[in-house]
Design a protein around this nucleic acid. Sequence first.
DNA 1: GTCTATAATTCGATAGAC
DNA 2: GTCTATCGAATTATAGAC
Lengths: 193, 193
Amino acid sequence: MARKQGSHAETTGPKVRDAALKLFARHGFAAVSMRQIAKEVGVQAGALYLYTPDKQSLLFELMRDHMEHLLSHWQVPDGAPLEQLEAFCRHHIRYHLDRPELVFIAYMELRNLEPENFAVIETLRRQYEDRLQGILQRGQQSGAFAVADGKLATMAIIAMLTGVNTWYREGGRLARADVEGIYWDMVRKSVAA
Amino acid sequence: MARKQGSHAETTGPKVRDAALKLFARHGFAAVSMRQIAKEVGVQAGALYLYTPDKQSLLFELMRDHMEHLLSHWQVPDGAPLEQLEAFCRHHIRYHLDRPELVFIAYMELRNLEPENFAVIETLRRQYEDRLQGILQRGQQSGAFAVADGKLATMAIIAMLTGVNTWYREGGRLARADVEGIYWDMVRKSVAA
DNA sequence: GTCTATAATTCGATAGAC
DNA sequence: GTCTATCGAATTATAGAC
């Protein structure tokens, strides 16, 4: 417990990732130094390079894993477009409220990605948007929705829902279930025929 | 024209502000150096300090001026809540599409403000949100709107509208007037009784 | 696997010449 | 009002001891 040196590969790896997540979310990628991350982990700066080739990879892997998990964690269920849209909205809010730091980084640090990394993240993000756009499109065709422009409505709904992370605080006036329900009600009405 | 030295106080001051605006928006406050700004302006780094006491003031004054202008540029008009809400939405979109860089900075660089500067900007932002919340509250009381939670609806609408800056590109598929109209239609329905 | 030490750059900000 | 030069500190990343 008191030793300052030794082998901790299994625990230090995740700790580096967690420290980077926390500090990037709080201060921004560019404002955080490798020494700050090392201090948070409890090692010297040089030791970080056993777990990441460089600072950029630390950011990219956080964002890529987040987007891939977002995509694999939820699929559009069978059913009517209205039910699919409700499932999307509720899942989006729940997932984003559960991971405020990852969500924040994924939206704020795009410009700090090197071009090839940026392209990867953008492709994943586009896949997520396409799921919602597909739901809206099928609802439009079936007459369940009245959406003047599918792409605009997709971006509008995602922006509206993701905004929950800017104001919602645990233990506040509204419970999570309330928040989910109220957002869903607004989305439902906004695309209603 | 070819001289590299001399007096340019009247032109250099605004150029410093414009260069900071452009570079902060593109790369982020923390990632931009005073030397980069100086290069963009066409002076040496030392000369910047004739126009700003430090880098932080450059950021703060951009954000403060933006928020103050947003507040003074538009007031809630007399009329029914529905008309007020339409005016708010259309103005918000128009104003934000006209100043994408300032809007981006105002939303992204809050965490790079020193505490006292942050407090000033937050107060201004809150004033803007309160205008919309007031409109929704009066509409709720008059029966024009059905809003389950005024604060949530305020944040949802602002997030949805501000999101236009993430995807809209001049000369694209939709004209500005179309974008305004479609967003307004979604907002109107989302709070409809 | 972690440490210490350091190379090579870059940073914000200032001093003083012109 | 601008430039050059520079201070002092911080940066990413690496080398080599243990």
